[in-house]
Computed example of a mutant assay.
Amino acid sequence: MEMSVEIVGHAPAFVMVAETAADVAVREALLDRAMGPKRRKKSSEKLRRGRRPSEGLAFVARDASGTVAGTVRLWDVTLGEGGKAALLLGPLAVDPSLKSAGIGSALMRHAIAEAARLGHAAILLVGDAPYYGRFGFSAARTGSLAMPGPYERHRLLALELVEGALDGVHGTLKAAGRKLKAQELTSAA
């Protein structure tokens, strides 16, 4: 499913589309520019390493010329040992030269809508509550959950796509989902 966004005052509209294999190098370069080299040390990265994004939940924003202007991916996780399935969102990044153009918000809305359409029950992320709160994320349901490795507890946020999806969840998030194939591991490094 594709979503177009007309950014008021900006000539090119942006289109949210499924990420392709050809986008990988461009996405990685964009993440490096937007987040810096320390991005690979984050706790969320431990849950992504060696895995593929959740089926159908890796998106890029392209401008009118087809250039990747932003990216977001969602990953399969379980909530604690043998716990419920959920998604971990991240990283969300927009080319630094295009900040405040609405691309990040459009990517978030698109990712949430697609996750709901595909039947997922909850999305978690580590991020700033003032930004992600406008999409319905909060720390209200994450108190008994933890990330592997260091993180700031108040930044572990969740959004229930299905009411009650986070009832009774506890423990440390664990990676789930599809593993990368050997050739993908070498090109992702």
Rank of each mutant, 00 (worst) to 15 (best):
A69I: 03
T78P: 01
H10V: 15
G36R: 10
K42Y: 12
A21F: 02
R33A: 13
V26Q: 12
D32I: 13
A13Q: 11
P37R: 14
R39L: 08
A25W: 00
S54M: 11
G70R: 05
R51M: 13
L79V: 09
A85K: 13
E19N: 01
S44G: 15
K38Y: 08
V17C: 09
D76A: 09
E81V: 07
A86C: 04
K42T: 15
V15A: 06
L87I: 01
G56V: 08
G70A: 07
A25D: 14
L57H: 05
K41H: 08
V24Y: 04
A86I: 04
S44A: 15
K38T: 15
G9E: 03
L30W: 03
S54T: 15
R51H: 15
E19A: 09
A34Q: 00
G36E: 04
R62E: 00
P37D: 12
A25K: 11
L31I: 08
A13L: 06
A58L: 06
P53V: 12
D32L: 15
V60E: 12
K46Y: 06
V24M: 04
E19F: 03
A34V: 06
A69P: 01
L57S: 05
R39D: 07
F14P: 00
A11P: 08
V15T: 15
A13K: 09
A64Q: 13
L74H: 07
T67Y: 01
D63F: 11
L47Q: 10
A61M: 13
A64R: 13
P37Q: 14
V17G: 00
S54H: 10
E19M: 05
K41D: 10
G66S: 10
R39P: 07
A18E: 15
L89F: 11
D32M: 14
V68A: 11
G82P: 04
K84N: 08
L31T: 00
D32Q: 15
D23G: 02
G70W: 05
A58C: 11
L89G: 03
V8Y: 07
G80C: 04
L88H: 00
G66R: 10
T78E: 07
A22K: 07
D32Y: 11
A64K: 10
A18N: 13
M16A: 14
M16Y: 01
A25E: 13
L89I: 01
